[in-house]
Amino acid sequence: MKIKIDGISFDAPEYFTILDAARFLGLNIPTLCYHEGLSPGGNCRLCVVEIGKGDRTKLVTSCTYPVEEGLVVRTSSERVIKARKMTLELLIAQSPTSKVLQDLASKMGLKQVRFKPKWESCINCGLCVRMCEEQMKAKAIGFVNRGNKLEITTPFDMESEDCRKCGACMYICPVVTLRCHGAHPESVLCSGCYNSLQPTCTSNEDNYNCWMGLKNECGTCYNGESNENINENIK
């Protein structure tokens, strides 16, 4: 399968998804509901990428989209970034106390959340459901109802006979395991840890290698240097 990701030609094996191919090439696509040990869910929509040529492009979740012959993928186009930021805004509005989400917001450079925060403790990412089914083989929890009433719970909201109380659902949950208490009541964003973060990028990264294509903007790839210096270095 000959595909092209961010201008890089790559011969991907048939069983690869776009996310697999991108990770293989070292391109960073942010994910939330993706986990190596579980089947891809495509629930969180953070891993969207743009595929297709010219005017006929569309956004797909890279974790569920299998590679196909001649596929052209852009992992950090303007449209992709915009979609991801919007998705993250919605996720944070649902659950501002999640450290995982707040860290993602910092890395993506999210400046504002335009939605009314709900302060829920579930974002319906489905990680716990897949964990319970695929790794624990318990099938105790599942999605109930639909639309805006969708929730993850046990049948009849009662203690399930299938549940062994292994705690795997809590372990994998991106919201309740790591709590962030720094979320600002008004902006709903925290970015407390982000200010004390060490630079995570390597020195020889290029535009394709950068988080979300936000080179220089996210702030983690340089330490105290001004933007101008960075630009000069690249030139």
Binding site: K139, G142, P155, E161, D162
Partner: peptide
């Protein structure tokens, strides 16, 4: 599993 049937019935 019960949760599958409950999921369908509530859907």
């Amino acid at each position: 599993p019960l949760r599958d049937i409950y999921g369908v019935a509530s859907f």
